[in-house]
Simulated assay, not measured.
Amino acid sequence: MKTMALQLFTVRDETARDFAGTLRRVSELGYTAVEFAGYGGLSIPQMQALLAETGIQALSSHLALETLEQCFEQEAEYALAIGCPYIVVPWLPPDQRTTEAFTALAETLNRLGSKAKARGLTLGYHNHDFEFAPMSDENPTLVLDSLFEHTDPASVTFELDTYWAAFAGVDPVDYLQRHSGRVTLVHLKDMTPERTFTEVGAGTLPIAEIIAAARASGAQGYIVENDQPRIPALESAGRSLHFLRTLPE
């Protein structure tokens, strides 16, 4: 298996109280990498020291589209300094989810992706469920399919959130197979029969098959996430990693 990371959004309450202490706990659980959802106010030297201390790799970082538009060079400098190869747009606010906005988004991703590539970074886009709706009543193409079609594979990659794909009624295994080569990062999540979040391996999604499809399609990193843990968040993260370690390589 490629790099196994934890999306720190899972433990957001803990990082808000003690960012460095939480990252140490994440390392103790056995995670070798993280995906950032903010840097806890740490300076570049502070983050460099913390990553070196814990042995944690900075795999990727979720950065709002507006932040990348307004502060690209600053964010690129931070990512490069901490050895973080991927910067990922995590979502679009509801007021930007229009046909026109989605069309413009592809152009924006291409532009930012080109800038990222020039700096030695890779830009990605992370989905929720709304990207699996048609572009419009007149255009039945799914929003995410349109983004795949109209973005440059040399500059823009995708981070498939398997929970939100399944929530939208899309088979994540089939989707990975159909978009082989374009999905570099995969969010490993699980779903209860009631369609709520749970630990990886405790729900209904075919995790082993998803990983196999991701591996075959060229994914480079797997990221555990639980948007709304019902048990202590660090315990949730630990249970997910424990399950993943039971799967055959």
Rank of each mutant, 00 (worst) to 15 (best):
P232H: 08
W91H: 12
M135Q: 09
Y39G: 13
E75H: 15
I87T: 12
H126P: 06
A81F: 07
P45A: 06
P153D: 10
F130T: 12
L65H: 07
R239N: 14
L63S: 10
Q177D: 14
Q220K: 15
G38L: 03
M191C: 04
V143C: 04
P153T: 12
E100G: 12
Y125N: 05
D129A: 14
L105C: 03
L234N: 10
L144S: 05
I231W: 00
I231A: 05
I207S: 02
I231Y: 01
Q228R: 14
Y78D: 08
P140D: 07
A33E: 01
I207G: 02
R17I: 11
S146W: 05
E194G: 10
F148I: 14
R178G: 00
T67E: 09
W164Q: 01
P140I: 13
P134T: 12
T184G: 06
D161W: 10
Q220T: 10
L6A: 03
E199N: 09
D174W: 07
I207M: 09
A233E: 09
P229L: 08
S114Q: 14
V89W: 02
N127I: 05
T246V: 11
T151S: 06
V88F: 03
P140Q: 13
A16L: 09
G40E: 00
R119K: 14
C71P: 00
F9G: 12
E138V: 14
L80T: 12
N110P: 11
I87W: 07
L51F: 15
E159P: 06
E28Y: 11
I82E: 01
V200M: 04
R230W: 15
D95C: 08
S180W: 04
E225W: 06
A5S: 11
T122F: 05
T184I: 03
I223H: 03
T108W: 13
Q96A: 07
E159T: 02
Q70K: 15
R97L: 12
L247F: 03
Y222T: 11
H187L: 05
T122Q: 09
K189E: 07
F72Y: 14
E28A: 15
R111C: 11
F72I: 10
A219T: 10
E73W: 11
A104S: 11
G203S: 08
F243Q: 05
A101E: 06
M47R: 01
T15R: 01
T32F: 00
D227T: 13
A116F: 03
H62K: 07
E77T: 15
T246E: 03
Q46F: 06
L247C: 07
T54N: 02
I44T: 09
Q46C: 09
A233P: 00
R17A: 12
P248Q: 13
I210P: 11
Q74N: 13
R25K: 15
T204L: 06
T192E: 02
I87N: 06
